[in-house]
Write a protein that binds this DNA or RNA. Structure first.
Length: 579
DNA sequence: GCCGTTTTCGGCCCGACTGTTTTCAGTCG
């Protein structure tokens, strides 16, 4: 699949055009095409073969030509020309919060700054203030933005890491000298941000394996190559380590490099006491000097008299103690999810019709699905007003009669406004099956105010779920200032569900907060918040967060059958109406 | 850039917020 590379190049082009000050709509055309291609379920090469590229909305003659060029040659002339023209550092600056294309150009033209490091220096030396449109506050906010960005630099989203890893695994698996292959490291443990990919291959032929990997077209630089290890840097800035081991060492190596370091340290300490020595290729029985090669990870944990611990839990956060006492959680699985309760349709800012969403959800084996478009205040997302919402409810009622095998729930993602009111009155909300409340404005308010807004929403008897409770966007935006302890406590008190949002750059609540929520008696719901069909599959990212947060099926309400789910919603409503 | 025609070019979500100004530009969702 070359979809990803085409999508990245188009979005790069959009960034560069924006910095150049090109026509805004041209920029948007590239962005739109990049998104459309990233979201395609078909392989773009097969669309070229069947000449159906032009059927994709937002792709015309010019972009079609460039797609063909990229698929054939890996790049296109226009892209290469722009890259020569616009310093790479300027594109990277777009990621700095509070800094957009216009100001980047201003700074570039006035001071000749082309890298983020130079920009940081200039801000520290107070050289930015005084430039047109930039004062003391902007200078400070740029500095703050750079520091935040540097914390995330060199790391990629879990979804990106998976995509790239899959491509490399596919190449390796197709090769006959390969015995077994899998990812290890933070990717296997499903951390939210990944700094490099670790791949473990077992084979008797390490040299040839390196050659196979080196044929991967996205390698920009070979960092290290020796007998058993290959480290490369991809053109996306991703570092990949491939380790080749003997077939009999595969499981012990996979376990060793999955980590975490802290988990292994604790585990090896226990092993020592049992007279066992672990390294990355085998287990040594110290007394006899005998070497031992486990044939599964279950066997490795079995040696230490404990049950298998899933990679997501291997952080030395109590899992080893729990394993020894046989008190590990019965971790939730993707297959436990019975429906997605946070989805946007083309009635607001989603791409697909309610019919399409229902069909896809049914295909995924779901029992129910909720349509939760934005509410009227979110103008940019074409939020629904009361009139359109009631029309949508009517349509869903009709569809439920026509479509078998899936129940469509009516719903809304209602804005919690800056004045702490909800965007709809109770007499509107009470007509819906599912009400999600969330914050999309006033991110800069103080802790007390923001906390109060969410708390008040939770006390509304018709609000079932608080979506993306902390509002963070990985690598882009810190969470708003909210007292999460108060939120968790109130959620438990009011029987309001908190969401684990599965969007790869949200994952909000995160693993730690999900675990804390469970400990405080809060029930959770795992949703995608998707705006297009393919995004329904992102549910796995939310489930992984839940697994890292020690959650079981019982802690997540959308693992339950519809009747039980509605009962939970009703309970809160009845309690609230009584008061 | 795309799209849809009024077939050859004009329209393409919009409003709030912030910090900069002193009436507005840039950024964001």
């Amino acid at each position: 699949m070359k979809n990803y590379i085409v999508s990245i190049i188009f979005s790069d082009i959009a960034d560069m055009l924006e910095i150049k000050g090109e026509n805004f709509f041209k920029v948007r055309a590239y962005r739109k095409a990049a998104r459309a291609i990233a979201n395609l379920s078909e392989d773009i090469e097969s669309l070229i073969e069947t000449s159906s590229l032009a059927n994709i909305e937002g792709i015309g003659k010019a972009l079609e030509g460039k797609i063909r060029e990229i698929v054939t040659s890996g790049t296109c002339a226009y892209y290469e020309k722009l890259k020569k023209e616009i310093p790479r550092g300027l594109v990277e600056m777009l990621k700095i919060p509070g800094l957009g294309a216009k100001r980047i150009r201003t700074i570039y033209e006035a001071l000749g700054i082309t890298t983020i490091d130079e920009l940081e220096q200039a801000a520290k030396q107070r050289k930015l203030r005084g430039l047109p449109g930039i004062g003391v506050k902007t200078e400070q906010s740029i500095l703050k933005g750079i520091q935040m960005l540097k914390g995330k630099m060199g790391k990629m989203l879990l979804s990106t890491a998976f995509y790239v890893a899959d491509e490399i695994l596919e190449i390796l698996r197709s090769y006959s000298a390969v015995d077994k292959v899998d990812v290890a490291g933070s990717l296997r443990r499903k951390e939210e941000l990944i700094s490099d990919l670790d791949i473990i291959v077992s084979s008797k032929d390490p040299v040839e394996i390196a050659d196979v990997v080196l044929a991967y077209p996205r390698i920009a630089e070979v960092l290290k190559r020796d007998e058993n290890r290959l480290s490369v840097l991809l053109d996306l800035g991703i570092r990949v380590n491939v380790r080749v081991v003997e077939p009999r060492s595969f499981w012990i190596a996979l376990h060793y490099y999955t980590g975490s370091r802290e988990h292994n340290a604790k585990l090896f300490e226990i092993a020592q006491k049992k007279g066992l020595e672990f390294d990355e290729s085998c287990v040594v029985k110290k007394e006899s000097g005998e070497l031992f090669y486990p044939e599964s990870e279950e066997e490795i944990y079995g040696l230490l008299k404990m049950p298998f611990i899933i990679p997501e839990l291997r952080e030395n956060k109590g899992e080893i103690e729990a394993a020894l006492e046989d008190k590990l959680p019965n971790s939730i699985e993707v297959g436990d999810i019975r429906g997605d309760l946070h989805i946007h349709s083309n009635w607001s800012d989603g791409m697909n019709s309610i019919e399409e969403i229902a069909a896809k959800a049914r295909e995924m084996g779901y029992e129910y699905v909720a349509i939760t478009d934005h509410s009227k205040s979110l103008k940019v997302a074409r939020g629904l007003d009361e009139e359109r919402l009631f029309k949508q409810i009517e349509l869903i009622k009709k569809l439920n009669k026509e479509i078998q095998g899936i129940k469509i729930l009516t719903g809304i993602e209602v804005d919690i406004l800056t004045n702490d009111l909800l965007d709809f009155d109770d007499d509107v909300l009470k007509e819906l099956d599912v009400v999600i409340a969330s914050i999309h404005s006033g991110f800069g308010q103080d802790r007390e105010k923001i906390t109060q807004r969410i708390v008040k929403a939770m006390y509304n008897p018709y609000v079932n779920i608080i979506a993306h409770p902390t509002g963070r966007i990985l690598g882009k935006r810190e969470s708003y200032d909210v007292d999460i302890d108060v939120i968790l406590k109130t959620a438990a008190e009011t029987n309001t569900l908190l969401e684990i949002n599965s969007t790869p750059d949200r994952l909000d609540l995160n693993d730690n907060l999900a675990r804390k929520a469970k400990e405080m008696g809060v029930k959770l719901v795992i949703n995608t918040d998707t705006h297009e069909l393919e995004g329904l599959k992102d549910i796995k990212y939310g489930v992984w967060v839940a697994r890292r947060g020690w959650l079981e099926k019982e802690d997540v309400v959308n693992t339950r059958p519809l009747s039980q789910l509605l009962e939970i919603f009703n309970k809160k409503r009845m309690n609230g109406e009584k008061k």
